[in-house]
Design a protein around this nucleic acid. Structure first.
Length: 651
RNA sequence: GCCCCGAUAGCUCAGCUGGAUAGAGCAAUUGACUUCUAAUCAAUAGGUCGCAGGUUCGAAUCCUGCUCGGGGUGCCA
């Protein structure tokens, strides 16, 4: 039991004698904002004072007298308007540390009511190369799954692959018309990727040609509108002038936006017209857009040729994708892609229709929702199903198969409206007991503050990104430690390169966009994976130099001694590991764990600086310090493991 | 038009279910390596928490309005 939940449990007894539901008040017990106030603080006397019409300090006194914490806290005092400051008792702390030292789980108790979570993450489209945008979902989902499991829940990870979408129509079209047979034999996935991009270019070209005049007309209209506004004389009315200025500014930004998409279209057209082969293919395939769609439709309707091609392509693509997951050390319990549900889609629509939830609108089957203007469309006018239909089928399957208590969707925040609707429809459909949560995350930005792209405008491919991370890490490892073998350097580069990438992502609040930067990710100092890994390696150095037998220390621990204040701080931090994990799960935020591990490592660095283990004044003190070292190492390793990041004994 | 999200130190970001004097890292300046790994530590400096109101014992945090930025918005996923 961590100190916070222990304190809350004690207060719960007193508070339930005063109010009906103390949950809210218990959440007002938290770590102290400033260490001079102690270790924890309870802020619940102020609201209670108001509720009972008594001075808060009087309530605080009642609480202090009522709560049984003599064994847990060496000090409990009232301060300011009615804060209750608590200082953890050193004997209790030492006792907890001993428990943690002996325990494989570092003293973290399992939850009393385990639940079943299904976590949907990563979910790339197969046959399209993975890019930097996929890493957030993958890392965050993986980490949340690991934390859930560690605290005792059942976490089922499911990679909901996009393996049934329109990209297959494009690839099939490409395969039928533009295949380079020998390239396909030599490297099938690369050739499929080329075909995808090739058809994409042709489609973009035709779409751009069609769109261009329309956009140019709009641009002209906007510009003339701008001219009118600019020539409008001031009427001397301040409010009207302000309005005018605002309109003009909005118009200008709209024009700029359009100019940008206009030049994008022109670039797409130029790319084709400047390339003789592309230009020829573009003119010979004027209906590529519709035809690619028809190939998708044929696949979905069970056309033998297309089905055969899909069955040929899919394993190749998945194998290729697996290479990336292997490099990242990411595993899934299930990888049930969209194709897995395609036979169920018609049933979803008919079931919802039978139950009276659907309504036909403009030829499409829709579910209208009170709190949304637009309905959720579950079947298109042409009879095809949409991802909303697949997502509904998926919820049904997950409930029937796993009886989930919660389904977490680790998906880009841009899809939040989709998920709001999806969850509403699911609840309407009868899945109203399960917690459905969109664990949304922000965009990975480039140094220009825009979504991360290469110089040529493509999204950054993931495998190239990993190569870059590792090669940069290799350079650092080699410079730093020239006496090691090259194999060791490569091993170090892998652990700090991939670890750095994961930590850079996970240490940001998932809801925010963040700026991607290699230098910062692999920086040798600061709040990085390297810093945590280095702390771990330094502990291992101590254990090596002192020839400590950690197994026997764990089995026969001596007393913990707090000679220096930093030893107590480190000890307190160590037994708060479980608190950090609890907090991660409140809002599914792995950055809470990153912060904890960083703070722990900082305390260890101070300890390292101030408290020699090797030259401790006494054997007892030396043993106590070794125990702190061992616990620190195991907590860092265990914590990093929950983030999917490895450690090294030497670096 | 409507909906959602964001704005915190020079930079990158934490903190946001209201708590005491707003934090970290980087960059800057200074100091510490015959020492268990200096991939480190100690210290200095850096702020109108976008703006204006409101709620209250107390607001970066909640509410309203505004400014700026991003995203979404019936037949893609």
């Amino acid at each position: 039991m961590n100190p916070l939940s222990e304190i809350r449990a004690r207060f719960s007894t007193v508070l339930s004698g005063m109010v009906d539901d103390p949950v809210n008040l218990l959440s007002m017990i938290r770590p102290a904002g400033d260490s001079k106030f102690g270790d924890y603080q309870a802020n619940c006397a102020m609201p209670l004072g108001k509720q009972f019409g008594k001075p808060p300090r009087e309530i605080a006194t009642e609480l202090c007298e009522g709560v049984q914490v003599t064994d847990l806290c060496q000090k409990i005092e009232i301060a300011g308007p009615g804060f209750i400051n608590l200082t953890i008792d050193n004997d209790w702390l030492k006792c907890s540390l001993t428990t943690a030292l002996k325990d494989d789980r570092l003293g973290v108790t399992k939850v009393s009511e385990p639940k079943t979570f299904v976590i949907d993450y990563s979910s790339p489209n197969v046959a399209k190369p993975m890019h930097v945008g996929h890493v957030r979902s993958t890392f965050i989902g993986d980490s949340i799954s690991k934390v859930l499991r560690f605290v005792g829940h059942t976490a089922i990870s499911d990679n909901h692959l996009g393996d049934w979408g329109t990209q297959f129509g494009m690839i099939i079209y490409g395969y039928k018309h533009f295949l380079n047979e020998s390239a396909y034999q030599a490297a099938p996935v690369a050739e499929l990727g080329r075909l995808y991009k090739y058809v994409r270019k042709l489609m973009d070209y035709h779409a751009a040609v069609k769109r261009l005049p329309e956009l140019e007309t709009m641009q002209d209209e906007l510009k003339s509108k701008q001219a009118v506004l600019e020539s409008t004389e001031s009427q001397g009315d301040k409010k009207a002038d302000k309005q005018l200025k605002k309109q003009l500014r909005q118009l200008k930004s709209k024009i700029a936006d359009q100019a940008e998409s206009l030049s994008e279209l022109k670039a797409q057209i130029a790319e084709v017209t400047n390339d003789a082969v592309l230009a020829k293919d573009a003119s010979e395939h004027p209906n590529v857009n519709q035809n690619a769609q028809l190939e998708t439709a044929a696949l979905h309707e069970g056309d033998a040729t297309n089905q055969g091609l899909w069955e040929e392509f899919l394993p190749l693509c998945r194998e290729d994708m697996q290479k990336i997951y292997d490099r990242l050390d990411i595993k899934f319990d299930y990888e049930l892609g969209e194709s897995f549900y395609h036979n169920e889609l018609a049933n979803v629509v008919s079931d919802l229709t039978e139950k009276g939830f659907t309504k036909e609108s403009e030829g499409a089957v829709c579910v209208f929702l009170d709190n949304h203007n637009a309905p959720m469309i579950i079947q298109k006018r042409d009879g095809a199903f949409l991802y909303s239909t697949t997502d509904l089928a998926t919820i049904k399957y997950r409930m029937e198969k796993w009886n989930a208590d919660a389904c977490l969707y680790v998906v880009d925040h841009r899809q939040s409206e989709h998920f709001e609707k999806l969850f509403d429809v699911a609840r309407l459909w009868g899945f109203d007991e399960v917690e459905l949560a969109h664990v949304a995350f922000g965009t990975v930005m480039g140094p220009d503050g825009k979504p991360y792209k290469t110089r040529s405008g493509d999204t950054v491919g993931l495998s190239g990104l990993l190569d870059e991370a590792e090669s940069r890490a290799l350079e650092i490892a080699t410079n730093q430690n020239s006496d090691l073998t090259e194999d060791r350097h490569r091993e170090i580069a892998n652990v700090i390169g991939i670890g750095g990438l994961k930590y850079a992502d996970l240490s940001h609040n998932r809801a925010s966009d963040y700026e991607f930067n290699y230098e910062k990710m692999l920086a040798l100092r600061g709040n990085t994976a390297t810093y945590l890994q280095y702390s771990y390696a330094r502990v291992q150095g101590i254990l090596r130099r002192t020839e400590a037998d950690v197994e026997s220390i764990r089995q026969n621990p001596g007393d913990f001694i707090f000679e220096n204040d930093v030893e107590r701080q480190l000890g307190l931090k160590l037994i708060r590991f479980g608190e950090a994990l609890d907090e991660v799960l409140v809002e599914y935020k792995p950055n809470v764990l990153c912060n904890y591990l960083f703070e722990l490592s900082q305390l260890f660095a101070q300890f390292f600086d101030q408290c020699s283990v090797k030259d401790a004044n006494s054997e007892d003190l030396k043993k106590s310090r070794l125990q702190l070292c061992d616990l620190t190492a195991r907590t860092i390793r265990g914590g990093l493991e929950l983030l999917g990041i490895g450690v090294l004994d030497k670096m």
